[in-house]
Amino acid sequence: MMTSLAHWAMAAGFVLILIGFYGALTNRNLLRMIVAFCIADTGVNIVLVAVGHMRGRTAPILDSAVPVADAVSRIIDPVPQALVLTAIVIGLGVTAMMLAYALKLYEKKRTLDIAKFTELKW
């Protein structure tokens, strides 16, 4: 069944997510973890967009190419596109926060090794 573009894109997205997760799970360096999460985020966004894709249709913008009357049969699903926009921005906010954290953590301990921040436990 893996025929459509959407499937391939989605598969790529999932793989990116898994790669990102693997990076986040195995890298002890905070910055590398953050980068890994960015990769996973990208994967998520690709999956999001892929879900909205429909074969043989065009972007949901009404212009001369897509008259209003034909819109229903000509455009792809606009909702995932709207969602992905939000998701990207939120991901950015989170990344910024994590970077700020990494910076402060480094200030405290002069290390970026996550395994060094385990005073709180049990």
Partner: peptide
Amino acid sequence: YYAERTAQDIGTANIV
């Protein structure tokens, strides 16, 4: 709904 109604209700060309 969006495809059909955006133009008349909202009036944007870019449905997104």
